[in-house]
């Protein structure tokens, strides 16, 4: 259900561009207005979502830990698995963001003959996820060659690494192959594994199809139905210098690619893809496990109005004295 809905959504989005560019030649709509709108929605959406998370009070420290908590000096504490200071939190967060450390611990339960319950590690999701995310980052950085002039040195460096094997002309990028294989795997596991298929929704399939279509249109443009990249760069630098132009004959495939990227940007802040910012704002990941060292005041504690004995005595001192009751202050 969700699968077909997502697939048809992508088809409709692509047909929208085909109609818009081929029939009505709304080049500036698809080349300038929608990308700008998408970028603005993306930025505002990210700020809105992050702001909303940041405003949510955290009643107590809830870091998830899987290592020795810091206690006596003669017990060796594990600052990465149970961080007790900011350094540990930053280290753990960096490993989480760069290498998906918690996903690496992914396990699977299997009932073997006997009957015997076996817990085993499964690294496939971790490996495909890591391959996908790193390729995506490389591809995004590589695209800076279209948006900047002169092109920064690191883009060239990355391109050299990515096209190391010089397969065909223009060179096949390794990340293109990796991202398409990884996304295909991430999609297939949702379809093939029954339990995963049962819990998969349109919100799971749609981003996968969207990213896969973006990657495929990109590869098609580079190797099979080439577009004039001189005009592409003119358009792209036009966008980044806020001086937009829509050169003639950029090619339909380019507009499809750009439109799908715009959809991705608009969709990102309001979907599960927002884990991009969310990982940094997860209380289970971004707090130090220092409950016994630092007092953590619940932010929504109501300021309770207290009436101390001294104040009571001030109020009733005369009456107390008259009744012969002892008072602390004369």
């Amino acid at each position: 259900m969700g699968l077909w809905f997502s697939l048809f959504s992508i088809v409709i989005l692509v047909l929208l561009v085909v109609g818009g560019v081929e029939v009505f030649s709304w080049d500036s709509l698809f080349g300038v207005l929608i990308p700008y709108a998408a970028f603005v929605i993306f930025l505002i959406g990210i700020i809105y979502r992050v702001g909303k998370w940041a405003k949510t009070p955290v009643p107590f420290r809830i870091p998830t830990t899987c290592g020795q908590h810091k206690s006596h000096p003669w017990i060796k504490a594990n600052n990465l698995e149970s961080p007790y200071n900011s350094l540990g939190v930053i280290g753990r967060m960096a490993l989480e963001v760069l290498f998906f450390r918690s996903l690496f611990r992914n396990t699977r339960v299997e009932l073997m003959d006997g009957p015997r319950l076996v817990y085993g590690g499964t690294k496939w999701l971790w490996a495909a996820g890591l391959a996908f995310h790193w390729s995506f980052l490389f591809i995004v950085i590589r695209h800076l060659r279209f948006f900047t002039e002169p092109v920064p040195f690191f883009v060239n460096l990355l391109e050299g690494m990515d096209g190391l094997f010089e397969i065909s002309v223009p060179t096949f990028y390794l990340t293109d192959i990796v991202i398409i294989s990884a996304v295909t795997y991430l999609f297939l596991r949702r379809v093939v594994i029954p339990q995963l298929r049962y819990i998969s929704l349109a919100a799971d399939y749609f981003p996968l199809f969207l990213i896969l279509s973006i990657a495929i249109t990109g590869v098609l443009m580079r190797h099979f139905y080439k577009v004039d990249i001189l005009s592409v760069k003119e358009l792209a630098t036009g966008l980044s210098t806020l001086n937009p132009v829509t050169p003639e004959g950029v090619g339909l495939l380019f507009y499809i690619h750009l439109f799908l990227v715009s959809i991705l940007l608009m969709y990102l802040p309001f979907s599960k893809l927002m884990h991009m910012g969310g990982v940094f704002l997860s209380p289970t990941r971004n707090m130090a496990n220092n409950n016994r060292m630092v007092r953590h005041v619940n932010p929504w504690n109501y300021p309770v109005k207290v009436h101390t004995y001294e104040e009571y005595e001030d109020d009733f001192r005369v009456k107390m004295k008259n009744a012969g009751l002892p008072v602390e202050k004369e």
């Binding site: 948006f147 900047t148 630098t237």
Partner: peptide, 19 residues
């Protein structure tokens, strides 16, 4: 995050050769 994501915009302004 904003500085990183708007890199092409300010890089082109600083470089001044984007035209």
């Amino acid at each position: 995050f904003l500085c990183l994501i708007t890199f092409p915009v300010w890089y082109n302004v600083v470089g001044g050769k984007a035209s």
